[in-house]
Simulated assay, not measured.
Amino acid sequence: MDIKELMSRYKAGQRDFRNLNLIAANLRNVNLMGANLSGTNLSGANLTRTNLSYANLTGANLTKAKLIDTNLTNANLSNASLSEVDLSQTNLSHTYLRGASLPDDV
Score class of each variant (00 low, 15 high):
Lys4Ile: 14
Lys4His: 14
Leu6Ala: 10
Leu6Trp: 07
Leu6Asp: 00
Met7Ile: 06
Tyr10Asn: 09
Lys11Ile: 05
Lys11Gln: 15
Gly13His: 08
Gly13Lys: 13
Asp16His: 07
Arg18Cys: 12
Arg18Val: 10
Asn21Met: 10
Asn21Ala: 10
Asn21Leu: 14
Ile23Glu: 14
Ile23Gln: 14
Ile23Cys: 10
Ile23Tyr: 13
Ile23His: 07
Ala24Val: 01
Ala24Asp: 12
Asn26Arg: 11
Asn26Leu: 00
Asn26Cys: 03
Asn26Ala: 00
Val30Pro: 07
Val30Ile: 15
Asn31Glu: 12
Leu32Val: 10
Met33Pro: 00
Gly34His: 04
Leu37Arg: 09
Leu37Glu: 09
Leu37Phe: 13
Ser38Val: 06
Ser38Asn: 14
Ser38Gln: 14
Gly39His: 12
Asn41Glu: 14
Leu42His: 09
Gly44Phe: 00
Asn46Ile: 14
Leu47Cys: 07
Leu47Asp: 04
Leu47Glu: 05
Arg49Gln: 15
Thr50Phe: 02
Thr50Leu: 07
Thr50Ala: 11
Leu52Ser: 06
Ser53Ala: 15
Ala60Arg: 11
Ala60Gln: 11
Asn61Val: 14
Leu62Val: 12
Leu62Ala: 08
Thr63Ala: 02
Thr63Pro: 00
Lys64Val: 05
Ala65Tyr: 01
Lys66Val: 02
Ile68Asn: 15
Ile68Ala: 02
Asp69Val: 06
Asp69Asn: 14
Asp69Phe: 11
Thr70Arg: 04
Thr70Trp: 09
Thr70Glu: 07
Asn71Ser: 06
Asn74Phe: 06
Ala75Lys: 11
Leu77Asn: 03
Ser78Met: 07
Ala80Val: 07
Ser83Lys: 04
Val85Ile: 03
Asp86Phe: 05
Thr90Pro: 10
Leu92Ala: 03
Leu92Glu: 02
Thr95Asp: 03
Thr95Gly: 02
Thr95His: 00
Arg98Ile: 09
Ser101Lys: 04
Pro103Lys: 01
Asp104Ser: 13
Asp105Thr: 14
Val106Asn: 06
